[in-house]
Simulated scan of single mutants.
Amino acid sequence: MKTLGVLGGMSWESTVSYYKLLNDGVRERRGGLHSCPMVMHSVDFAPFAEQMGQNDWESITAGLVRGAMSVEAGGAEALIIATNTMHKAADKVQAAVNIPLLHMADAIAAGAKAVGASSLGLLGTAFTMEQDFLSRPLKENYGLDVMVPDSDGRAMVHRTIFAELCCGKLIDKTREEYIEIIEKIAANGAEAIVLGCTEIGLLVKPEDVSVPLIDTVEAHVELALNYVLK
């Protein structure tokens, strides 16, 4: 098996899911006492969140680069950024290391293929929904169309990610609002919904909605496992 580098802590609520699913996946495929070899660099998320609020992506990128170099020095043979939003810096992170970055867009595309979807709804932070660091590679590399909620929906999703989900707060009323947003996007033609923040899958489950969900934690873990076990 190869050793995986993980940049986590953004937030740690979903990094826990990554860690469990990576180890569960190796055990299921290899059996016995096997688990996933990994080197993790887990950050203090508060400064990153503050820098996002200040649009200080230079500092964020520098922190991610330091983390990537750290896991490479620790023996990692591939790297994942265990969050969607931070893929805004993916190109610069990849340029700083000599190991492959397993990109979230590739994981999402594989998830879309698995459910036979060519038109995707995307939920996430405002950065993920309103900028093109995920939607562009999905369109250019895989021909996938991406739609997002209206302005009120985007504001609600962004706010609750930071105020609730990243703090471990799973609130029924918020779940209901997410379901309403998801069903509206589906009615507008989305064939599957990308839970494009790694905490959303903690709140909304496949049985809650009428449209297939692509949980980016699960999709990203699958991509990583295929590499680790290759």
Rank of each mutant, 00 (worst) to 15 (best):
G168N: 10
S17A: 14
A187V: 14
K173R: 15
G5C: 08
T160I: 11
V16A: 13
V43Y: 08
H87E: 00
R175I: 11
E176W: 06
Y142C: 02
K169L: 14
A62H: 12
N55R: 14
A49Q: 14
E130L: 10
S17D: 15
G121Q: 04
I171H: 11
I60N: 09
I81M: 10
C36E: 11
A114E: 06
I60V: 08
V194W: 02
R136W: 04
M129E: 01
S11V: 04
A49V: 12
E177A: 10
L203Q: 07
M10Y: 06
E58A: 13
R29C: 08
K230E: 14
V157T: 00
R30L: 15
L195N: 11
D145W: 08
V209Q: 03
E199N: 00
V217N: 11
V146W: 06
H34C: 12
N55M: 08
I171W: 04
D152K: 14
K173Y: 13
D208T: 05
E77M: 09
H34T: 13
F48R: 07
A105Y: 12
G53T: 05
T83L: 05
L21H: 09
E50D: 13
D215I: 01
L21P: 09
V217W: 13
A186D: 03
G75I: 14
I108R: 07
T160Y: 11
D215Q: 06
V16R: 13
T61L: 07
A224V: 02
E218A: 15
M52P: 00
N55Q: 14
I60G: 08
D145C: 03
K139Q: 12
N141T: 12
P47C: 12
G9E: 03
R66T: 05
A49D: 07
I179R: 04
P206G: 04
V221E: 13
V157N: 03
D24P: 15
S151Y: 00
S151D: 13
E176Q: 15
S35V: 15
A78C: 11
V16F: 10
L101N: 00
S42I: 15
A95R: 03
A112R: 10
E199A: 01
L123H: 03
A76I: 13
Y178R: 01
C167S: 14
H220L: 00
L223C: 05
S11H: 02
W57F: 04
R136D: 00
V148C: 11
D24S: 14
